[in-house]
């Protein structure tokens, strides 16, 4: 985890009571480089991925922010959706969030059986083995914003044992 050059690397790194625009970039995206904040003060965060540390840092920044703030999330879909899920948990509503997802990127498959998330590059409609319980999961475009992932369910549940 590293913070962008616009802000000193001070952990939370955001003045208390911030009500400007928090621009969060994941991986190598430069989508927010020229993002127009409409004259509002801007605070930049950059993370390699939505790791637990990155999420904790985002949570802390949001905890210091006040209503009026806007959050823009950019990068691979899995990271953006994980961060959006946390932002919603912190009380942000849709109008306060903008998601700028890369065109392609790995998906997070949320296992409906053991609730473990598995990241995959497989396309929608294919199978993936759950990292938690080993069940072969099939996933469709059934996406949950709350968990930031696609629902995966046992691919062979209806076959005779």
């Amino acid at each position: 985890m590293r913070t962008a050059s616009q802000s000193p690397a001070t952990g939370a790194g955001c003045e208390p009571g911030f009500r400007g625009v928090i621009c969060v970039s994941f991986a190598t995206t430069d989508a927010l480089q020229d993002h127009d904040t409409g004259g509002m003060p801007r605070h930049d965060l950059r993370f390699a991925a939505a790791t637990p540390e990155a999420i904790a840092n985002l949570r802390s920044v949001l905890g210091h922010s006040r209503v009026g703030v806007r959050v823009v999330l950019a990068g691979p879909p899995a990271d953006v959706h994980a961060a959006a899920s946390v932002a919603a948990e912190c009380g942000l509503v849709d109008e306060e969030m903008t998601l700028v997802c890369d065109e392609v990127g790995p998906r997070v498959i949320f296992c409906g059986h053991c609730h473990t998330s598995t990241t995959t590059d497989h396309p929608i409609g294919t199978n993936v083995d759950c990292q938690g319980c080993g069940t072969t999961l099939i996933f469709t475009d059934h996406f949950s914003r709350r968990v930031g992932g696609y629902l995966g369910f046992s691919a062979h549940a209806e076959e005779a044992a």
Partner: peptide, 9 residues
């Protein structure tokens, strides 16, 4: 008060 409310207010 309008400028000091925690998120989710």
């Amino acid at each position: 008060q309008l400028t000091t409310q925690q998120l989710g207010t």
